[in-house]
Amino acid sequence: MKILYASNIRILLMIVIGIVTLILINNQIKEDKKEEYEVQKLRLEYPLIEYSHEYYLRKIEGVIVNKKLDMGRFNKGALYLTLNNGEKFSIGYATRNYSYKPYELVDFIQVGDSILKPSGYIYFYVFRYEEKYTFILGRSIKNE
């Protein structure tokens, strides 16, 4: 009788663990879908410069009034910028210049900086306190 009782408890325990596991997996899937939906909304609002032919050909110029860095799982490291002229765009790849500290553009760039991306180029210039800083979108510039 005790063996039968212990066996039933083990089966019941396995069923409870299975149900809890399914609930946790279901909640994670819901969270993933919600985060993915938010990323899709951001991608529409802030087009990627590197991938968008239109933005590659356009001149982008203005003063940064808002900076957001995505730390989620689906678009981690993407930089979302809003300019004083209302223009919004994102930079999604590592852009570095090892001559500067910090060398990552996402860490270097600040609200209040003036920026310029000339039409048809992947050069990205940051102007701060009468200084000009050069980055190449999606590339690293080595400190020589």
Rank of each mutant, 00 (worst) to 15 (best):
K2E: 14
L12K: 08
L12N: 07
G18N: 12
G18K: 08
G18L: 14
V20Q: 08
T21R: 09
L22R: 11
L22N: 10
I23K: 08
Q28H: 10
I29G: 06
K30D: 13
K30H: 11
K30R: 15
K33P: 03
K33G: 11
E35I: 14
E36K: 15
E36M: 15
Y37S: 14
Y37V: 07
Y37A: 15
K41D: 13
R43Q: 13
Y46C: 06
Y46S: 03
E50N: 08
E50G: 03
Y56Q: 07
Y56N: 04
E61M: 05
V63F: 04
K68V: 08
M71V: 13
R73K: 15
F74M: 03
N75C: 05
N75R: 10
L79A: 00
Y80I: 04
Y80N: 06
L83R: 04
N85F: 02
K88Q: 13
S90C: 07
G92Y: 06
N97D: 05
E104P: 02
V106H: 09
I109Q: 00
I109W: 01
Q110H: 13
V111F: 09
G112Y: 06
D113E: 07
P118V: 04
G120E: 02
Y121N: 09
Y129C: 04
E131M: 05
I136D: 03
G138T: 00
S140V: 00
K142C: 00
N143D: 14
E144N: 14
